[in-house]
Amino acid sequence: MLSNLLHINTLWVMASTMILGIAAGGIGCLAYWKRQNLMSDALSHAALPGVVVAFLIIQEKNLLLLVIGAALSALLGAFFIQWFTSASRITEDTAMGMTLSVFYGVGVMLLAIANRSPGGNQSGLNNFIYGQAAAMVRSDVITMVVLAAIVIFIIFIAFKEWKLFLFDPDFAKGIGLSIRGMNVLYTIVLVTTIVIGIQAVGVILMAAMLIIPAVSARYWTHSFKMMILLSSVIGGLSGAFGTWVSSTGSGLPTGPFIVLTSAAVFTISLFFGKEHGIVIRYIQFKMQQRSSRLDHQQVMTGKGGRSQ
């Protein structure tokens, strides 16, 4: 099993899913505080038709072009959600649920057409559904690493701006931060992270890479900066570890193993996290109970002493 690690290709792929995990963990925190966890799921599903349409047009698997197709289709999905919500009585979660399934349905349908076209069967397009990091060639890896690095840079350079934008947008606007600009930037980094990740993780599970590290990090810290850092670390480690596990057997999809790894981290955080983890809370409660019982007893014995 360990001999895998020595394989240069595996190392490359692990490095790329790790940097993807770091970017997704960071942007996941932004989505968490924007209360838009479901939005990332809708966007990743909405990316599928774009991938296939791009492939049908160019007739080859060039990741950068497929990613551009995916981004356009995800943005179209985001536009529909926005438009349905503002122009009709449909609420946002309904609009997301509808957009998610319709776009995904169209994507799967187009995929069947693409697979019948000459060369389509060997294209590996099916990997975009469950994710197959091993299918990435070197140029794919470079595309992914460069784009993920840009995303990470944008998250970390504008730390205090993100914080203000997410905590109190009205106040932010009052002191001159462009909320529209921040929203555009947020959507760009979110969509970029999603579309570069779908080949390795798949459209179905991509959202988990954003959500799970963020919510796990929440159990360990009370600082926004630490939450982003921790979430990035959890995302990066899950990405690398999940990829390594999936590389040990042939044809194992990458996405599920990454998600299961971060889910394991979440489970540990849920029980043992120092901020409101279940076990910690129970222990704190018991200690409180004991100390107040002791107080109570002291009061009682004190009273007893006086009355005698």
Binding site: W33, K160, E161, K163, L164, L166, F167, D168, F171, I175, L177, R218, T221, H222, S223, F224, M226, M227
Partner: peptide, 18 residues
């Protein structure tokens, strides 16, 4: 605003200086 946001009092006040 959401007071559950992970930050402390001093940090919120510092926002006034951004």
């Amino acid at each position: 605003v959401d007071w559950d946001f992970p930050t402390d009092a001093l940090d919120v006040v510092t926002m006034g200086l951004y």
